[in-house]
Amino acid sequence: MLLPKFEFHEPGTIKEALELKKKWSSTARFLAGGTDLLVHLKKKIITTDHIISLQKIEALSQIRDNKDSVEIGACATMAKISGTPVIKEKFSALKSGVDNLGTHLIRNRATIGGNVTNASPAGDSLPALLIYKAVVLLESLDGKREIPIEEFFKGPGKTDMKVDEILTGFRLPTPPAHSGAHYIQLGKRKSSEINVVNVASFLEFDPKTKKILNTRIALGSVAATPIRALKAEALLKDKIAEEASFYKAGEIARTEDCKPIDDFRGSAAYRRAMVGVLTKRTLATAFELAGK
């Protein structure tokens, strides 16, 4: 399979990248890990005249621990994120998400920025970013812009990023004490899978009362974008953290929060049912981790 012809640009700074993007506008595409972009070009799903590689811009692939938050550069690879101590220790659901993306080979190239800008409803890192309240960091020649990740997704393959903008990274506030999070993805096999349903849950509780203080549940592959299960979250507020509550939350997420469709990977009915099961299970594990 051949790639179409294009011009290749390899800027060294974000500013240079933005200047190139401004010049070539929608005829240019940013290349991060390439694990989706090059496949889509080969399959003629998309076209481009200019490729602006971001790999030489070091700032984009850094992961910085600011103690109260962590900043992940858009071009950090899944493998790098997975291996970063602060991610392993404090953002286990994100680690689990990036560990499930593609294969060990893909994860050495694929970047979190690429996964997010692709905006697949099934994207592996997205539910975790949602439950960790990630802030999307964008930049254009006119300045910087930050928006909550939930507002970033506009539909399958569509985001809020403007044609002259670049995604520089994400800021995730460090989760509080007595909190935990978990991610489960469900597919047909155990590697290289495109999810049928994927769910991440975050839970913070009061160790004295066992009451749930805060919870966030994100559902993937059951709507046009990854979504929060807001009704299930509302139900859990101030409830005792226990199996029965998690089950009820799952039921609400299943019946009220998700709006899945049928496609060749799975039916809406099954996806809906699995939202219930995975919500319950991710909450239970999140609670277990929160207690540790």
Partner: peptide
């Protein structure tokens, strides 16, 4: 699969210029 700068990658998804 080849090893590129220490990591195994799919060489069909790496541009030669990269």
């Amino acid at each position: 699969t080849v090893i590129m700068n220490g990591d195994p990658v799919n060489s069909c998804l790496v541009l030669a210029v990269q």
